[in-house]
Design a protein around this nucleic acid. Structure first.
Lengths: 249, 249
DNA sequence: CGCCCTTTTGAGGCATTTCAAACATTGTGG
DNA sequence: CCACAATGTTTGAAATGCCTCAAAAGGGCG
């Protein structure tokens, strides 16, 4: 079940003969070198079930498109939870979320015997799609949003209410810190209701969690003003999974 | 709480004086007309709390970047559920998921007094970013994935296990249909475990749901082969929310 | 000050998980 | 080709986290 990464020995693929080309993101990439996407798509040997196309953390070498078969795209949290993000079929694009960091943020594994076309990126990931500054920025922003959404799914799918809350606060903290504000104290611009909806729990649960965290000395909360008293403990709580058993593979 | 859409009377904004420009997707868009993004960013009047920048279904006229304040991005399902997708802060891009369809797939509302910069798109959404065919396709594919992830979050956040299952089967059905395969019978390429993880429920729950659906005559299931016997009833089940009260606003 | 909306706290209920065990299927080696 | 092991699936019964309902307390604002 834990197969090897496929080795790519590309052979030229023809979109003209591909029955999925009308669904396919690569249909305009054939036989031109514009946009930083070199030459045309190329097709490696088919992947057998369980074989990974790439894994989270791998360097971005190419984007891929499913040509036949199907794959599963999933993400792992630091603490070992796994959340499947999508199942993907012929014509679907794989690996876009690596644009920006240059490293894959998800793993992709074949569900059955599967063929993919590679859209090779010349000279590093960033420069590849940066032929024009604005569209490069847009792509990076889109990839960043994709990663955010994936992490959100991980949160909703694999974490307890308390872990969601903790992760939410830590994410806010990080964003404020990145903007030069305090990492440990800030005002929430959203109501309890809005937090509740984002984290997909009841408002009452949010309220109880704030109370608990305060009672335990992890947080000081005054209305919408939050002060983080123990960053390490908050981080520890964010890593607690929902339980054990939401189908770990 | 249900404020009006802001009216945009753009005044030129300077990224040079914006303290968030180093986080901002617009920082390279200033004062040039390349990439289909016209001129530079422009800044409308600030939005007060509760005012919408745009709503789901609105025509895409512009992408936006938060300049000050914060917003909430959420999506509504046909049956009235609401799921907050993200909170966004200065430098964050808004509206990208409208690339492709040309219509916004989420609503964005100010959480506090908020300023946004507009990145106007000339001559319709599609053509705007299509200056090169490949990067246009990539953008559309990325936007499409973004929408998928948002729907996934809606599923995980607002739907009961049975509704998730039904929606999952209907989505598969639609994908097969789009590829010319049968809309009503197909083979699942993924195991129960994999479905369970994707829908964030226990494997046993998936198994029980298959049994229930079969018992009720909605589905015929034989191992991985599924036949949908009553599309309308399956659709009805997909629209049942988890309960009523996961913070509907 | 009084009304309204948000937040908090408590008690009970329910959907889903957890645990346990039988059964089916697939793959493997003899 | 069969036996056996490993894995995936199904079903039942009990446990539990979070929701629901209810009601009171705490700001915000005219």
């Amino acid at each position: 079940m834990d197969g090897n990464i496929v080795s790519f020995s590309p052979t030229s693929a023809s979109c003209g003969t591909c029955r999925w080309s009308r669904f396919c993101v690569a249909r305009h990439a054939e036989s031109n070198g514009r946009d930083g996407v070199a030459k045309g798509p190329s097709c490696g040997a088919p992947l057998r079930r369980g074989v990974h196309l790439f894994r989270q953390g791998d360097e971005l070498k190419s984007l891929y498109v499913v040509r036949a078969g199907s794959v599963k795209c999933y993400t792992d949290s630091e603490d070992g939870c796994e959340q499947t993000i999508a199942f993907q079929f012929p014509g679907d694009l794989l690996g876009f979320d690596a644009i920006g960091s240059g490293a894959h943020q998800t793993s992709v594994v074949a569900l059955e015997t599967t063929a993919v076309c590679a859209l090779p990126l010349p000279r590093g990931a960033q420069t590849a799609l940066e032929s024009t500054a604005v569209s490069g920025d847009l792509m990076r922003a889109a990839a960043s949003q994709l990663i955010d959404r994936q992490n959100h799914a991980l949160l909703l799918g694999q974490k307890s209410a308390q872990a969601r809350m903790s992760a939410f606060l830590l994410a806010l903290s990080a964003r404020f810190a990145a903007r030069g504000c305090s990492r440990t104290e800030f005002n929430l611009s959203m109501s309890r209701q809005e937090i509740a909806n984002y984290l997909a729990v009841a408002v009452e649960t949010i309220s109880r969690l704030f109370s608990d965290l305060q009672r335990r000395g992890v947080l000081a909360v005054d209305r919408r003003f939050v002060r983080i008293l123990s960053m390490p403990r908050l981080q520890a709580m964010a890593h607690e999974a929902k339980s054990v058993g939401i189908a770990h593979a």
